[in-house]
């Protein structure tokens, strides 16, 4: 087959795959529904939700996880398209990092040193480490599927970004159940759970997202 013969066949084919942006919106919607269902059917929301929502630390957890979610969606979208501006998207990740960093400093200033250890260990770190990855399974699967309608030139990084989006989404839902609200706890355990899911995403992506 000469190249001009191939071009003739390509030009005759009008089928265009679904745009990655649309695929991402569908995947995020499906992922959010799955994550909410998993949370509500197992752990549920903490009983004092309506009370603690008026504190500072509890709602701030959502500020951090939602900022991470938004920044990682931007990164995933950049990685899904050839020539996407990945560097700019990576810089956006500095916003959630800054949000948790500032909160950490404030927490260390306002808390007596004797309380640091107790807040860091929290009441249920093991549940946090298990729940976030479990809630993230559905969103991760949906996002990896959406990535297949893209053309990621770095399949491993694309998979990692899918893991980051899925675990940030899972962390946002889990935060509604979790009674540990200290930035010390978030920085240690939420981060560890998110890092784990991100690595899982990278490993799957490097195999499944080649094209």
């Amino acid at each position: 087959m000469r190249t001009e013969e191939l071009i003739h066949a390509l030009a005759a084919d009008r089928t265009v795959a679904i745009r990655p942006g649309r695929a991402f919106v569908l995947a995020l919607a499906a992922g959010a529904v799955i994550a909410a269902t998993v949370l509500l059917s197992t752990l549920g929301i903490r009983p004092d939700f309506l009370v603690v929502i008026h504190t500072i630390r509890f709602p701030y957890k959502f500020v951090v996880t939602i900022a991470l979610f938004a920044a990682s969606v931007r990164l995933a979208f950049a990685l899904a398209r050839p020539g996407g501006d990945v560097a700019a998207a990576v810089r956006t990740l500095g916003i959630p990092a800054l949000l948790i960093g500032v909160a950490l400093v404030v927490e260390l200033v306002v808390l007596p040193e004797a309380d640091w250890g107790r807040r860091l260990v929290g009441s249920n770190a093991r549940l946090c480490l298990m729940a976030i990855p479990v809630i993230a399974v559905g969103p991760l699967a949906a996002l990896l599927l959406a990535f297949r309608s893209g053309a990621p030139t770095s399949p491993m990084r694309a998979g990692a970004s899918a893991g980051l989006v899925a675990s940030a989404l899972a962390a946002t839902f889990y935060a509604a159940h979790c009674t540990d609200d200290s930035p010390l706890f978030i920085a240690a355990w939420y981060s560890l759970a998110i890092a784990f899911v991100t690595v899982v995403g990278a490993v799957i992506g490097s195999r499944a997202l080649r094209w």
Partner: peptide, 26 residues
């Protein structure tokens, strides 16, 4: 060319097309 064809859904009119083609070629 096959890759460009099958993934042309990933190009947006607001994106410069040169870097898009170059990234696929690379």
């Amino acid at each position: 060319l096959l890759a460009i064809h099958l993934h042309r859904n990933t190009w947006r009119q607001t994106d410069p097309i040169g870097p898009w083609v170059a990234a696929i070629a690379r």
